[in-house]
Write a protein that binds this DNA or RNA. Structure first.
Length: 585
RNA sequence: GCGGCCGUGGUCUAGACUGGACUAGGACGGGGGCCCUCCAAGCCCCUAACCCGGGUUCAAAUCCCGGCGGCCGCACCA
């Protein structure tokens, strides 16, 4: 099976996906639209099962809250989150044929280096240096411009009411923080999960199911106190091994991941947040449950210029795929308090959390009081936001900068405001505090469901005796059990249908098939990953036993019909090995 | 720096260079039947396609242009 060449394998999977109804390109009858795929009957089931597995592992077992918020989002939300400013990619246009391309991707193809995070000028300079041309017609390229990848729309009949399709589900969580914090009964830490459709107007998606314009993201925002960032469950995973490629080593030119325990990774500062480390272990195990062995995965830290605008540290979980090389399946960002802070600035809501002291403390505090008049004079409509932003900034920083430079550069939603002495009154006061108000920090594990789906298929794909066997993990199989009468006579179909109905009643996903030869029916089920086939033969009519046939070994055992639901229950829910099932019967 | 290739039933493809007998062939799949069977057996019947639009021509799957979609190589870099 490993002798398959990489394109071969991918082609075979894509073909299987179309032929058996896992997925295909959308809008085929109109020539297709790149960046969109349809999930077919089996694909839709498999996708849901992967999502369900994720909910089971993260929401149920980790005690997170699952929510579901809209795709369409009013523009102010993404102004606050910074996406209207930062969710952009450099696009360059061919002077000859007019085609548009991701400038950094063209450079990357050309040089093999990564060019994320360069300025437009730097990019253009590099493009000229490397003589990057239009891949389609060889024409000269214009200097790149930033293209915002948010899908824009209007809400209702008023064209000025702009909305965007969300590029991540996270903002639906952040904008609900207050209510969710209430539902968490006012205690940190707590986590919120969401799985849903997102849209990103990619400039030129060319990697099939890997780079989509409409995708499903499953993400968690885990809120914790930055002054008490300990993960209380870290001891459970401290000896777990992670394959890591941290920034420190990347900068030294290391290209192979190292294997370290979680404890070491934290001690060496490879991973800065315990909560992120904890979820990285969970992510490794989750991906393993999809059939992708841990030695095929590793986590690579994003360099500062590659990171998203909100991130303090990000690791990508990568996996090796046959055609597309190493591909990100999940990202693990430490989002600091960026999002909540910006939503405070834009909404005016207090999204801080009150953490009481054991007893009240008298403290001297430096206070920064915004001077409304001066702010309005200099910042007009933005004055209110500037003033909110000011009160959320460490007063000491402001004073230090004012003292040293005469001004302070207040950074917010992609803009920088120059604050001078006249904008603020600095006061030192003695106050009695009963507790502190903090903006929680956020650990964000974020998974791309479509990529997980593809990777699952690829790692399940195998061939045996010239036919395809899809070795999906049993709990992911879209069809769990197939029921076949050995022949279509002597009452075998009737008996088989009874067994089929009984299994349906017990909640299994079952398929009945009586067409063609028995071997052909087994083969069909192997190809779509059905783990168990139940066959009704002449012996069934005598002693009420059926055969169970294992997808991976093609071995068979006989089981009493009455014991069938229980046996399958053991197999699917309790993960009893096929060969041990016989002993139970 | 440069170039190239491809799009035909559900899937894989023949046909294209050299336009006409193509009513578009095959294999696999799928449906029905025979057979009555534990790993894609065999036989019969059926099913279903030239990516879209325009042009050239008496005639276009075939040539030209445009669109949509898919893909690759050399060189360079490491």
């Amino acid at each position: 099976m490993d002798c398959l060449s990489s394109t071969d394998k991918c082609q075979k999977i894509m073909e299987l996906a179309r032929r058996r109804g896992f997925f295909w390109q959308s809008y085929e009858i109109y020539g297709g639209e790149s960046g969109f795929i349809d999930y077919g009957p089996l694909g839709a089931l498999l996708k849901r099962k992967i999502e369900q597995k994720w909910i089971d592992e993260f929401v149920r077992k980790e005690g997170l809250m699952l929510i579901d918020t809209p795709i369409i989002t009013p523009s102010i939300v993404f102004e606050a989150s910074g996406h209207t400013t930062y969710f952009t990619d450099p696009v360059t246009t061919c002077k000859k044929c007019g085609r548009k391309w991701r400038a950094d991707h063209l450079l990357e193809e050309k040089t093999g280096e990564s060019f994320e995070g360069l300025t437009l000028e730097e990019l253009y300079k590099k493009m000229l240096e490397n003589n990057v041309r239009c891949p389609e017609c060889g024409g000269e390229l214009e200097s790149p411009k930033f293209f915002n990848e948010l899908f824009k729309t209007t809400i209702g009949p008023y064209s000025e009411n702009v909305g965007y399709g969300r590029p991540e589900t996270a903002q639906g969580i952040f904008s609900n923080f207050k209510r969710l914090y209430e539902l968490a009964r006012g205690k940190l830490p707590f986590g919120v999960a969401q799985a849903g459709r997102c849209v990103r107007n990619e400039i030129s998606p060319r990697q099939g199911p890997i780079r989509l314009r409409e995708l499903t993201i499953m993400e968690i925002e885990f809120f914790f106190d930055p002054e008490n960032p300990k993960c209380e469950k870290i001891f459970e995973v401290k000896n777990e091994k992670l394959r890591l490629l941290p920034e420190k080593l990347l900068l030294d030119g290391v290209t192979e991941p190292i294997e370290v325990t979680v404890e070491e990774a934290l001690k060496n500062g490879y991973i800065k947040s315990e909560w992120n480390a904890y979820f990285m272990v969970k992510a490794k195990k989750f991906v393993e449950m999809l059939g992708i062995p841990s030695e095929k995965q590793f986590f690579k830290e994003k360099l500062p210029n590659e990171r998203a605008h909100y991130s303090t540290q990000t690791y990508d979980q990568l996996v090796e795929l046959s055609r597309w090389g190493t591909v990100e399946l999940s990202g693990h960002a430490w989002r600091s308090n960026y999002d909540l802070k910006m939503h405070m600035v834009y909404s005016g809501e207090d999204l801080r959390v009150f953490v009481p002291y054991n007893k009240p403390q008298k403290v001297r505090r430096l206070l920064v009081e915004p001077n409304k008049k001066a702010l309005t004079k200099d910042f007009g409509e933005e004055a209110l936001r500037v003033s909110r932003l000011l009160t959320l900034t460490q007063p000491e920083f402001i004073r230090k900068s004012l003292d040293e430079n005469g001004f302070y550069e207040l950074k917010g939603d992609g803009k920088t405001y120059r604050i001078t002495f006249e904008h603020v009154n600095l006061k030192e006061v003695e106050v009695e505090e009963k507790g502190k108000r903090i903006i929680p920090n956020v650990a964000e594990p974020s998974f791309g469901l479509d990529r997980l789906f593809y990777a699952t298929l690829e790692y399940a794909y195998s061939e045996k005796d010239g036919r395809v066997v899809l070795k999906l993990p049993r709990e992911l199989a879209p069809i769990e059990v197939a029921v076949f009468p050995l022949m279509t006579k002597d009452g075998l179909p009737e008996k088989a249908k009874k067994v089929y109905c009984m299994l349906l009643d017990h909640g299994f996903m079952v398929e009945y098939d009586e067409s063609g030869s028995i071997g052909r029916r087994y083969a069909r089920m192997d190809e779509v990953g059905t783990p168990i086939a139940v066959t009704i033969d002449h012996q069934t009519l005598q002693d009420n036993t059926v055969t169970l046939r294992d997808r991976d070994t093609w071995e068979q055992i006989r089981v009493k019909v009455e014991k069938l639901p229980l046996t399958l229950e053991k197999y699917f829910r309790e993960k009893v090995d096929f060969k041990d099932l016989a002993k139970l019967c």
